[in-house]
């Protein structure tokens, strides 16, 4: 060995190694998340347009004032919240039902689980197009089925009717995301030890008691996580709505509104203000959910 015999103390050496290994990922996070977010923040206080970023002037809170006084913005906030609350609760209820079903020891469970992955794996754009076709007012299979069953008397323009379009989009999201919730809850169910269930049965718990008093409390961490993940996704929904109903005010969400301002209207200032507000909305929900999550997983950590 010709190297000098002294090296840095082991622990410090290892710490330096860790930082070196971590640095590229941190740099990437800074580049694709940190910096763009800071840019968005600073642009929100300027009159920048897509073509004139360099000459942008500071305008203070003007963009925020403008956005917050825009009825379209509030419509988008309303749509986003309705979309998130409805789709996530439906997904949770259906997902729980399907998870219990898949955990019930049916034959062909593996196949069912594989099937559950299909809607999750289908690209959102594809899901949007397929459902858009199924919702078609003249040739759509949804109208055909409902007419055949006598639920509706005449064809319905699901996506064109402002009263129905949001519900139609929500149903599509439910189709696409329920499997994800199902798989998370199924994983949670499978961590409940069988003896616990057996003990509850011996103690005389009926199926409903079992569900409410044993399974749901034990499933709480999985439920909270599923809701958190789904809520985050639902609050920033874009693809589905962009493809299914494009510019309809009846379904525009905050993400749609923001991109429209940024790209279609080329108004970087107002768009960035909307982006900041969107981020704040989602951040608040995430922080609330993380706090709700804490006590449940505190022990597991």
């Amino acid at each position: 060995m010709v190297r000098p015999a002294t090296v840095a103390p082991l622990r410090r050496h290892r710490t330096r190694l860790a930082w070196a290994a971590l640095a590229p990922a941190l740099a990437a996070v800074a580049a694709v998340a940190g910096w763009p977010l800071l840019r968005t923040l600073s642009l929100a206080f300027t009159d920048a347009r897509l073509a004139t970023i360099e000459t942008a002037r500071w305008v203070g809170l003007e963009n925020f004032a403008w956005t917050l006084s825009d009825p379209d913005w509030w419509r988008a906030v309303f749509n986003t919240l309705v979309f998130a609350v409805c789709s996530v609760s439906l997904e949770l209820v259906l997902g729980l039902a399907f998870a219990l079903l898949l955990n019930a020891g049916l034959r062909g469970q593996g196949a069912l689980r594989a099937v559950a992955l299909v809607p999750w794996a289908v690209p959102t754009v594809v899901a949007a197009q397929v459902w858009r076709w199924m919702y078609h007012d003249v040739h759509g299979v949804v109208n055909e089925l409902l007419l055949g069953l006598g639920v509706i008397a005449q064809p319905v323009a699901w996506l064109a009717d402002p009263a129905l379009s949001l519900a139609a989009v929500i149903l599509t999201d439910v189709w696409k995301a329920t499997p994800f919730v199902t798989l998370l809850l199924l994983a949670g169910l499978q961590t409940i030890p069988a003896p616990v269930i057996a003990a509850a049965r011996l103690d005389g718990a009926g199926p409903l008691d079992l569900l409410i008093r044993i399974i749901l409390p034990l499933l709480r961490p999985a439920i909270v996580v599923a809701v958190l993940f789904r809520a985050l996704d639902a609050l920033r929904v874009f693809d589905l709505i962009y493809v299914m109903t494009s510019n309809s005010r009846a379904t525009a969400t905050v993400s749609i509104y923001t991109r429209q301002a940024l790209i279609d209207f080329q108004d970087l200032g107002a768009g960035s203000a909307a982006a900041v507000l969107t981020f704040a909305l989602i951040g608040m929900v995430a922080v609330a959910a993380v706090f709700a999550l804490r006590p449940a997983t505190g022990v597991a950590r």
Partner: peptide, 9 residues
């Protein structure tokens, strides 16, 4: 003395 050497050496 080896207390300053990494395990490998």
């Amino acid at each position: 003395r080896i207390d300053h050497l990494p395990p490998a050496r």
